[in-house]
Design a protein around this nucleic acid. Sequence first.
DNA 1: TTGAAAGCGCTAACAG
DNA 2: CTGTTAGCGCTTTCAA
Lengths: 336, 336
Amino acid sequence: MRQTTIIDIAKKLGISPSTVSRALSDHPDISQETKARVRAAADEMDYRPNTIAQNLQKKQSQIIGVVVPQVKHYFFAEIMAGITDVAYHAGYTVMICQSNEDFEQETNNIDVLISHRVAGLLVSVSSKTTDCGHFQRLVRRGMPLVFFDRICEKVDASTVVVDDLEGAFRATEYLIGKEYQRIAHMAGPPFLSISRLRRQGYENAMRQNGRPVHPEWIIQAGLNEEDGTAAAEAMLSHLNPLPDAVFCVNDPVALGAFVKLKEKGVNVPADIALVGFTDGPVASMIDPALTTVRQPAYLLGKSAAEMLLDQIIHRESRKNPVHKVLKTELIVRQSA
Amino acid sequence: MRQTTIIDIAKKLGISPSTVSRALSDHPDISQETKARVRAAADEMDYRPNTIAQNLQKKQSQIIGVVVPQVKHYFFAEIMAGITDVAYHAGYTVMICQSNEDFEQETNNIDVLISHRVAGLLVSVSSKTTDCGHFQRLVRRGMPLVFFDRICEKVDASTVVVDDLEGAFRATEYLIGKEYQRIAHMAGPPFLSISRLRRQGYENAMRQNGRPVHPEWIIQAGLNEEDGTAAAEAMLSHLNPLPDAVFCVNDPVALGAFVKLKEKGVNVPADIALVGFTDGPVASMIDPALTTVRQPAYLLGKSAAEMLLDQIIHRESRKNPVHKVLKTELIVRQSA
DNA sequence: TTGAAAGCGCTAACAG
DNA sequence: CTGTTAGCGCTTTCAA
């Protein structure tokens, strides 16, 4: 598609390209009359600035690169909404890449984004990312970067997370307060910060309330519904006595467990109570509705984008990384 | 962030930039030895090609622009997954914009993407888009463009949709077959192709089975849960006798209605049966589980991306637009 | 097998 | 107030 350039306009008007450029960007040196003529011509010729050329010249693009595990997970989709809204209003565009929970794809994505000379990076690491060396290098070289939700603790970058530790603690304490006796935990992938913190929150709550932490009550699950289903299956066949309550690392796992328990005729919450983490759209719709820890996903995306923009704009004054922690809220419904 | 350039490598190796460029792209003219040296240096200096410069030179970017109403809607999030996967494997990156169902934002997004000289455009129009002139102009000027799901019928561009008419028809016929007597329809925004076709499918099924189409049985709703809730409220207070079955334009509306009906003590499906359209993650989790028309969202995104890529690659041979229609599947569960 | 030079579209000194 | 010129990083003829 052949596009009109500044030179086309200049030729048509019999003036120089630089004048056109200045007129278009409303430079004070240019006369009102010239500006008007240029704008009219630009309009008529359907001129659209070539961002690529502008960016090459500025040695930087107005693009924010985002790397997430999967956009189709409601939590990330909602975060994306927050990010794109903020970016849009600041005149930035968002370039999205999915790692599909794969380390290779993740590094590959980063390379692509770097090649596009993105102004900054927003990343939530895959569940298989253990080596954060490339992120560390990026940060050292001055690339604006903010981790959100799933962070690399070793990297010296800004982060936005929810208070996983406290959220998990409160959820578990709630279960303890309701006099559940055998409270289990379905845990996420071990390398992930969120998994560790939520598990820690569970353990802390147990210990601080004089409850033993039985290793067999901590069931390795994952982050998806299938993981919850599998974990529930395993729990049902291997644990005796069965737990009477389960705090799950997130909603999908809770939902997967929910389905399996229902299938096996286990009553929720009478036989086994269930608590999730996230509060996605399904949580309130199931019956009994899921008690869960609400994460402000949109706000998480919004904050991450704002922090990144701040870094991009005040790039010179290299301040220390900022760590923002958003509050969660325990939403009590009927499943526990 | 200062990045290594081809010139840096050239200087370091005491050769010319063009040789480095050729070596990096594995040009046959360059000796194996030089290639090896260049690659080693590039690696060591952490060289990443400047896509911006490459694109300026090629007068085109390897970016696919996507405009959707809202990423956080599961349906679109899943489509996005399909698009990004295909794009990724073809060496393209995806730039996402949300219109937030707003016409101004939509045109604005298009402008931004055009300015970025995207290789092509994938768009699903907002519910307020009635004027498709800008799309038509884009197509005339040769911009590769594929509409998906929500299309502009007037524009001479390729499209990928699901068979809304047939899906709606089958869903309604199913209801008729189950001997429901007063089958209503909660309709979507009138300007949208999907709304019209689903409504048409409903009406066709009614007429072809000798059922009258009562205007008061067609309730204007929208596309979101709130719309379903409001529509259910209106239905409950204004219709007498009440319908005994409702075919909803999509899952969110069905879910909104579901909640309201439950709240008002109306039994689903005994008093009023409910059918949705989409089959999102909530549908199978509610009780009674939602009978709905499954749309292959991921495939929709995948197909749209593939068609666009095809257009981009065979750009010269300007073929006629392709119109792909994907099959839906009626998923019978307990709500009807 | 390699180098020199031009040019992609735009901006920004510098000059007039 | 406007024009000239150089250059952003890369690819690609054309020469050597």
